[in-house]
């Protein structure tokens, strides 16, 4: 089922001289896990902001084409309505937490929507639980590590019960270990709770094994869109500012050495490559 679609979408920020998005056509089905990749400034963030109505409602500019989120045309609905369908988490966790306790932060959006207290309580409990941060409930944001803050930021959006979660480089300020933990949680949201994920990230090595789809954007245009294995098998994505994980490089080279008939497939993680090599070894 299509949950998100754009049709011939163009966008130019007011005051900007170039189009930030060019002719974007996209259809997303429910339950997908999509990575948006590309060099800094390629348009990934801009595209994400089209999915929850920040564009065109918050950012001024020229927009051509349309975006529909769960059937709602983003031009006709304000961000606070669209955010209940497509919730957005930003890069810097500090700038997304407004309250003085974790619980209050997770309740914040619901309070703004005038949701009855009992339901707020229920949703807050749920969001804290699925993010695995119940024990942080009464903590102040100042006491949290970067990774914990980002989990709170995600919980505060999940409380809105969106079908789609938009994440704009959520791990960029985290160290690798915290990043891995956050990504694991995001994967669980997708696999266990069927939340559709669209994530802009540079850390492809951690994400690729879980992604159903990779979209590479260059200069505002979608240049590659498809299964991550196929894309990485056939294309050199470095020129788009996307780093190919080392295992993919090893596998590509291995195929060259062993010949095309080797039938290695395209492993996206260390485990997959080890498995392939093991099978060949003991064939």
């Amino acid at each position: 089922m299509t949950i998100l679609e754009t049709s011939n979408l163009w966008f130019k920020y007011s005051g900007g001289s170039e189009w930030a998005l060019r002719e974007v056509n996209l259809e997303v089905s429910e339950g997908e896990f999509i990575i948006l990749a590309g060099r800094s400034g390629c348009g990934k963030s801009t595209l994400l902001r089209c999915f929850n109505g920040l564009i065109p409602h918050f950012y001024d500019g020229e927009m051509i084409g349309y975006v529909k989120v769960c059937g709602l045309d983003t031009r006709e609905h304000p961000p606070y309505v669209l955010s209940q369908y497509a919730g957005m988490v930003f890069q810097n966790p500090d700038n997304q937490l407004f309250a003085l306790t974790v619980e209050a932060d997770v309740a914040f959006a619901l309070e703004n929507l005038s949701i009855p207290r009992d339901e707020i309580r229920e949703r807050v409990d749920w969001a804290l639980k699925i993010m695995g941060i119940e024990e942080l409930r009464d903590k102040s944001p100042l006491e949290l590590s970067g990774g914990q803050k980002q989990k709170v930021a995600i919980a505060s959006i999940l409380a809105l019960r969106p079908k789609i979660l938009l994440l704009d480089e959520p791990t960029s300020s985290l160290d690798p270990y915290s990043a891995k933990q956050l990504i694991d949680t995001i994967v669980e949201l997708n696999q266990k709770y069927r939340i559709t994920i669209l994530i802009a990230e540079h850390r492809l090595d951690m994400l690729l094994p879980y992604a159903s789809r990779l979209i590479i954007i260059d200069n505002g245009r979608i240049v590659l869109d498809g299964n991550p294995r196929e894309i990485l098998e056939k294309n050199d994505v470095v020129s788009y500012g996307v780093s190919t994980p080392r295992v993919v490089k090893v596998a590509t080279q291995l195929k060259k050495v062993l010949g095309d008939s080797s039938n290695l497939g395209t492993p996206l993680s260390v485990e997959e490559l080890v498995e392939i090599v093991r099978r060949r070894r003991y064939q």
Partner: peptide, 9 residues
Amino acid sequence: TVGQDILQK
């Protein structure tokens, strides 16, 4: 390298 893409790195 925080927040930098592969080309910048």
